[in-house]
Design a protein around this nucleic acid. Structure first.
Length: 798
RNA sequence: GCCCGAAUGGCGGAAUGGCAGACGCGACGGACUUAAAAUCCGUUUGUGGAAACACAGUGUCGGUUCAAGUCCGACUUCGGGCACCA
């Protein structure tokens, strides 16, 4: 078949007929199918796009044939760092390069033959889009969900700019090699932590991969414990968070994070130099390095002492980099006898190690003993089991006003300020008199100026543009400055699924009534790398907008599917430096999109992915040619009465078996087995080998079954079968169960759980009948016991 | 380092705890052809055997079960994420 020619013919026809338009009148039958939109960093669609968009489109087309009105939009996540880096390197403006890339990708997406409705296209860098991103930020601000806080950023002293984690390589700047520091800057945060509990609970209500739910649960990191207030010997106090309050009597020192605000105040003069050095050193390390459990623990003494509230004991206050300012209270109590990190630290620095838990059942309990057990050397808690001791000690502290039970989350607020150019400007104004003031909604969008020097020079690129920065305070009318930062691109992508149905609405971000009809997204497909960030942010924004009354659903994505990662032919992740990048165009331009897509369907387990190999592509083209030949033969047989009943029954079985499996497999994103069932069907048609009505009917069903996968080829064959309408609008075949029923079935027989052979029995055979047949096969007189699972196995035990 | 996955023939991959290897690639054989290509048909986990069949076999080691690729524990290797790449 001339695939390229066929594809051009049908694509043109579909475009002329607007075959992929969403019909709003049928919104009651809607299915919202969405892929994570693409980031136009390169000029071309890469293999991952094909794998995500191409195969999800197979699913979308199946749903259409099953009678649903599918809403399947496409757009671009167009702001972001790579375009800006590219601009710094080449001088090409991010807007220009991004628009050019989008144009190319749009063309390629159209040639994919996927059923996107382009009427709803969005681009996050379009002022008509980011206007509403800014509007959402303002709503969050008005509802107390946005606030300014100090937070550390990576600062390259040589480039004189903030750099992303990605640009930090082994603690050094990837551009110039200078050692990167962490600096505190004032930044906007969205208070996602307010929703920690609901984000956790909501996971139970959605159809997502279990592993993704587990990852989100761990990311949110709820832990039950308590706070303990330590008074400082020289006045003042601080709280620690612990999940093991039962070990409080064994606390022999306390540790603050190096960044803890109290550190400067409490450090004694003798210790000052060491503490300052240590803080500077800690600022150079990433959190991953700091929390590594194999890294040797280090720390320094501050010279200060704190009072353990349960026993009045004076314990030294240290700082150590394994304590993070961002988790819990930024301070921990150290119980070396019952925590491995504290133990290593205490051994290294000669701090006391005192047992306060022993094993309950006499099992070995060498120190450090981190298991639960029974409290010892713990005053009033002696003899209590760990759980009881926790409660007793926290209750005691609560009674004294020195702490109590507390639940903590690992989840941190979402930092959204970026000291970069290519993003949505933060719609806030800083006034000397009024402080931070929101831009009024009527003045949105705050437009990103085109003429900006985005080269690094010590502050945000926008901050150097006086024309942009100077404005008047909306509150007092005095002179004021704009916020020089832009929003994290995750903000743009945390609500785009709400915008698609409202893509052309220039009055609102979305029309609530309409949004309620089309959302939530029924099936969302994208990479598992987004499990904790994008997917959590989107859930948060949905819940926040719901609480403001704008939405009436709780979760944005009912069902989630992750596609796997396609690796290079060498089994490694594709990358420029490895030189193992596969360009899909090289194959699509030769074989066409149908063949390439069917290859992607067949060659991988969708959710696993795997190494790419060119070897499988040509065979798919051959297979479609083989299918074409048998369909062509079948056309000649139309109207000829079938002769052989047995052969016809076998063919009909194959047809209905394929019908039964194909749709179910595609719906389960098991594309490879769906293709396998189609191959079995064509094999059965070849075996039948008679041009008559039975073969003709099989061909008709086959063409419908294959249509979601290879729509162009299916349209062509459908036309040749004598049809005038589109095969893509035919109802998807449903199996006739009566054709699948067999008078005898093969029942595997096991002896003591080992397979011994099969017997043919009636599908509804009784246990006695089945046992008799099995015993005959095994030539045994009787069974001691029989395990019979009709349709599955019969296991004889002697 | 921490969290989450994955590992099955020469290769890609199938398999609600119940016949491991569906389907395909490759390889081998046959038909057609003067020949080749293309096509159609067949064989193809390993070992032994002419065969029937027997034994072994799903990364490693151990466990649960009448029965384990599948469940549990420990490990090895690879992949994803770790909050400023998206």
């Amino acid at each position: 078949m001339d695939f390229l020619k066929i594809e051009e013919k049908w694509r043109k026809k579909w475009e002329d007929e607007r075959a992929d338009s969403f019909d709003v009148r049928r919104a009651d039958k809607k299915k919202y199918v969405l892929e994570m939109f693409s980031y136009p960093s390169g000029a071309n669609l890469h293999l991952g796009h094909w794998y995500n968009f191409g195969l999800t489109d197979v699913y979308a087309r199946l749903l259409r044939m099953q009678g649903f009105e599918v809403f399947h939009p496409m757009g671009f996540d167009a702001f972001g760092l790579p375009a800006e880096n590219y601009a710094i390197k080449t001088g090409i403006h991010p807007k220009d390069s991004t628009e050019k890339n989008i144009k190319t990708m749009e063309g390629q997406l159209r040639n994919m033959g996927a059923s996107f409705d382009w009427d709803y296209e969005i681009k996050t860098c379009d002022p008509e889009y980011y206007k509403w991103t800014q509007w959402i930020f303002l709503q969050l601000y008005k509802h107390g969900l946005a606030e300014q806080k100090l937070a550390p950023v990576n600062w390259c002293p040589s480039c004189n700019t903030v750099i992303a984690n990605e640009q930090v390589v082994d603690g050094c700047c990837e551009r110039c090699g200078a050692v990167v520091e962490r600096r505190e800057m004032r930044q906007w945060f969205l208070k996602i932590t307010k929703y920690a509990e609901e984000l956790l609970d909501g996971l139970d209500t959605i159809d997502w991969p279990e592993k993704t739910k587990i990852m989100q649960r761990n990311w949110i990191g709820k832990s039950y414990g308590g706070t303990v207030t330590f008074d400082l010997a020289n006045g003042g106090s601080f709280d620690v968070f612990t999940t093991r309050a039962d070990t409080l009597f064994g606390c022999s020192y306390v540790v603050l994070a190096p960044e803890h605000p109290l550190v400067r105040e409490i450090t004694t003069d003798e210790c000052k130099a060491a503490v300052e050095n240590y803080r500077a050193e800690a600022a150079r390390q990433s959190e991953i390095d700091r929390t590594s459990t194999v890294k040797e623990k280090t720390g320094v003494f501050t010279g200060a002492y704190a009072i353990n509230p349960v026993n009045g004991r004076k314990v030294p206050v240290w700082i150590a980099d394994y304590v993070l300012a961002t988790y819990g209270t930024g301070a921990v109590m150290a119980v070396p006898a019952h925590d491995t990190r504290d133990y290593d630290f205490a051994v290294k620095y000669g701090l006391p190690i005192e047992r306060v838990v022993k094993s309950a059942d006499g099992a070995p309990d060498d120190l450090p003993y981190v298991e639960y057990g029974v409290a010892v050397n713990s005053g009033f808690a002696d003899g209590m089991k760990t759980e009881d001791a926790k409660n007793a000690i926290l209750d005691y502290l609560a009674g004294k006003g020195k702490g109590g039970k507390k639940t903590t989350y690992r989840l941190r607020d979402w930092s959204v300020s970026r000291q970069r150019y290519w993003g949505a400007p933060i719609p806030m104004i800083h006034c000397e008199r009024c402080g931070a003031v929101p831009v009024s909604e009527k003045d949105l969008p705050v437009k990103l100026p085109y003429n900006v020097d985005f080269k690094p020079k010590g502050k945000s690129p926008l901050g150097a543009n006086e024309e942009y920065m100077n404005c008047t305070c909306p509150k007092c009318g005095g002179p004021a400055r704009r916020d020089p930062d832009t929003l994290d691109t995750f903000v743009c992508s945390s609500w785009y699924y709400l915008r698609y149905p409202n893509a052309k609405n220039d009055k609102q971000a979305f029309d609530t009534e309409w949004t309620d009809k089309l959302l939530p997204v029924d099936t969302y497909v994208g990479g598992a790398e987004h499990a904790c960030m994008h997917l959590l942010y989107a859930r948060f924004i949905t819940k926040a907008l719901r609480d403001m009354g704008y939405l009436h659903f709780d979760e944005p994505f009912k069902k989630l599917v992750h596609q796997g990662v396609i690796l290079g032919p060498d089994g490694k992740r594709m990358s420029k430096t490895r030189g193992n990048i596969i360009n899909p165009d090289d194959y699509v331009s030769v074989y066409g999109s149908d063949v390439f897509k069917m290859y992607l369907c067949f060659a991988f387990s969708y959710t696993e992915g795997g190494p790419f190999s060119t070897d499988g592509i040509a065979p798919i083209a051959k297979y479609l040619d083989r299918a074409e030949r048998i369909v062509t033969k079948a056309i000649d047989g139309k109207g000829i009465a079938p002769a052989d009943d047995k052969a016809r029954a076998d063919l009909e079985y194959a047809v209905n078996y394929a019908a039964k499996c194909c749709g179910a497999d595609i719906a389960a994103f098991s594309f490879n087995t769906a293709v396998a069932r189609l191959m079995e069907l064509t094999n059965a048609m070849y075996k039948y080998d008679t041009a008559d009505d039975a073969l003709y009917n099989a061909a008709v069903t086959f063409v419908k079954l294959v249509a979601p996968i290879t729509p162009h080829v299916a349209e062509e064959l459908w036309e040749r079968l004598g049809n005038k309408d589109s095969v893509l609008r035919q109802p998807y075949p449903v199996a006739d169960e009566s054709k699948l029923a067999r008078s005898l079935i093969e029942m595997p027989v096991q002896l003591m759980g080992r397979f011994k052979g099969t017997v043919n029995i009636a599908p509804d055979a009784t246990e006695a009948e089945a046992t008799a047949a099995a015993l005959a096969l095994l030539e045994l007189p009787a069974a001691k016991k029989v395990i019979y699972k009709p349709g599955k196995i019969l296991n004889i035990i002697v």
